[in-house]
Nucleic acid binder design. Sequence first.
RNA 1: GCGGGCGUAGCUUAGUGGUAAAGCUCCAGCCUUCCAAGCUGGCUAUGAGGGUUCGAUUCCCUUCGCCCGCUCCA
Length: 589
Amino acid sequence: MAEAKDIPVMEKIVSLCKRRGFVFQSSDIYGGINGFWDYGPLGAELKRNVKELWWNTMTRMREDVVGLEATIIMHPQIWKASGHVDTFSDPMSDCLLTKKRFRSDQVEPQSGIAYHFAGARDTASGRELNEPFSVLLPAGKPPESARRTAQLFYQQRGLAQAELLGERTEKVENSQRYNPENGALLTEPRPFNLMFKTYVGPVADEDNVAYLRPETAQAIFAQFKNVLETSRQKVPFGIAQVGKAFRNEVTPRNFTFRSREFEQMELEFFIRPDEAIEAICGTVATPSGPGHPGQPQPQWGWQMWHQYWVEERIRFYESIGLPRTSLEEYWQKPEELAHYARATVDLLFKFPFGTQELEGIAARSDFDLSQHQRCSGKSMTVFDEELKGAWAKLAPDTQRALADRYAAARKRYLEKTGLPTEAADKQAAEDASQLGRGYYVPHVIEPSAGVDRLILALITHAFREDEVTDEKGKKETRTIMRFHPRVAPVKIGVFPLLKNKPELVKRAEEIRDLLRPHFHVFYDEAGSIGRRYARQDEAGTPFGVTIDFDTLGETPELRDTVTVRHRDDGRQERLAVGDLLAWFGSRLR
RNA sequence: GCGGGCGUAGCUUAGUGGUAAAGCUCCAGCCUUCCAAGCUGGCUAUGAGGGUUCGAUUCCCUUCGCCCGCUCCA
């Protein structure tokens, strides 16, 4: 939980984000819109850098991952298959008396006598209220009890001396409309849909309903076969995607942390089922302890792959300036796991408002592809030539043992979909015999990260305030955003020492133009040099280049050298202009 | 969605039923030989809508947004 002293820190960060152009409230001039945020000039650069680094790390720097960019609106059946339509829309009801909220379909059914009231009159003021209210009493309870509850209800609405009007009774069986705790009427069930709904085509009717995707992952599953067939990849391999997702969050909170429109960076990494690995390699490697397991190996089972991706992701965060110590690894307990997940690790970051999830790395078995196979009727199996060959050479006992294990796992999935035991048995046996011929539905490891959360983590982690006392003894606070150079929105500030010396300005512009094609530079000639340094510190610019009279040759041996200033400690060093590109290149990439 | 708090310039704050104030920031000019120097000038605000009133930033209502708690959290 957030501690009181931390709240002002968050406020300072929000304020800085606006002042410096990292994050603005969406639709600000119209009063804003809850749960939506825009990135300003610095924020946009920061976010671009982060997404690009993720993309390069996950796809271009690897042999075994390819990319995808899918649409935000997809066939509504996808969300049926994924389970989002069902799990994202719970009907909710509130107790009219206590405001307590219930899942409408999970209210314990009540039977008894319902006392309906049409309204009430305040005997003191004569004011009348025509708001109906009802109380359900178990059979045999005295009616007075219902009237007292109703009076409480009308008192809450400002009638001090409520005289009940229009009382009538009704026998009720197994109703979910009343609060089991006090008998008070609940509000009408209201659907609580976390998915944004829209309509495709000009006619806004139920046949044309579609949803803005609540996660990017499903597109990867839906396009699995197309990618497999065109990318010349084979299992194990991954498909990565970066893109917007939308959730109609109940309570957007904590600045950009929980937004209604947000961006995800997701990888679905497809692997062989353990039974296939055992058939091919004779064994399945499992983790021998914590830490990075090293280069992927053919005998790795899902647990190895899972741990591998957890460690890979932590390495990524380290590479952009979030040290391991700023993160927390949380292994979800069995009872917390989603029904399809075998294991999930949350990578948490210590935000000022609490330790919160940045990324989840889930081992999702073959659930997702199986769901789409079932719902679309299209096969999601891959053919694994190596498996087919290896299987044929196995002893019959081994074949049977592996097939049985595989069948048991398939059966567990099939029964969860509601298939009767007999049918599930039959289908599972069929799936197991397919395995022996080299066919299976791949399992998947899913590292899924929130871009905007990561941006917020980088901003809060970079934020530092220093108390500085100047020569006059005046105290002031200086803010430094200590971004890792790789993610910093602006890489280099370029400054002529003085603005009113044209020869300095001219040389500074030349150096700016020298660096500009390679790095994001910001040229500034306004105000004192110290002020310009301070401005760049607040933007998180890691390096400053200052052009002075020595650059022009005032001291002959320093001709064509510049001051390079380091953001975090103010350290300065003298570098030759000709060395700048290489020097920065080695520090910014 | 419920309850509480808050909403004055880009930021931080002042103030009043009767001309809306300041510091910082920002912009322009002058000046300035390395860490928010100085001088001059300038832009910019009562979240939105309605009501009461001769007159509302101030009082009332509604609404939007932010913060805290509850609820929710695939």
